[in-house]
Amino acid sequence: MARKLEESTGHKNEGMESGGCGFMMRSEIAHDEHPLSLGKTSVWNQFFQDTEIIEQIDRDVKRTHPDMHFFCGDTSLAKSNQEALRHILIIFAKLNPGIRYVQGMNEVLAPLFYVFRNDPDQNNAAYAEADAFFCFVELLSGFRDNFCQKLDNSVVGIRSTIAKLSELLKKHDGELWRHLEITTKVNPQFYAFRWITLLLTQEFNFADSLHIWDTLLSDPEGPQETLLRVCCAMLILVRRRLLAGDFTSNLKLLQNYPSTNISHLLYVANKLHGASAG
């Protein structure tokens, strides 16, 4: 920060020093560089914005998988892992000024970092931070539109993705779709927003999430279509309870999805892939 200011005002100072005055010169500070400047281009404005983002990242990194020793606690392992998450999220926010940091990105990053850091080959594990960063950027290149508020109402934003899930359910299980959305008025946004934005990391335990991610990330067509099929399969697997439920019980069920046999879930999701419109 100080260096940047020095660089930008450097030439002015030089000019003044050559004036040969014996006193220490007060350097001229351009309006935009004043700490109290409200200008959007002010370096200080940028500094304050960064501080706000970093504070938010710090708060969320501390509450990433609080139940796992790998991420939380007083051990040096947990502390260095938190540092790595923090670095990655800050750099991502700086490189993507249109999105910056959105709450929940920590949850998408955590499985990637966990897998790289636990590589049995120590030489690979040493580069976990860099590898996780690279993959995080790659993964979000397909999903970051979901994090972008400006795109909420566009064809690539989160609302349109949720609408695709609704269409998928309607196609494969019209009765369930009708009961959920028409009869009990459960707007898919109320549950699927988190399912999709966080790629199902919050709905199952960590090991199960990794299991699902193996399938999501290995699909040559990319993860999004598979993700929607898995979400649709989740609804179909609890269809009997949903069909018997009202608004409250259905929403509670879908916001606290019961633990389930992941292999079976993925099997059902995969079958939707082959099935033609019914």
Binding site: R59, D60, K62, R63, T64, P66, C72, Q103, G104, N106, E107, Q189, F190, Y191, F193, R194, T197, L198, Q202, T248, L251, K252, Q255
Partner: peptide
Amino acid sequence: FSFETKSTIGVEFAT
């Protein structure tokens, strides 16, 4: 009460 509540994404619902 939980000291480490995850950030709420979207909406959560209770009665």
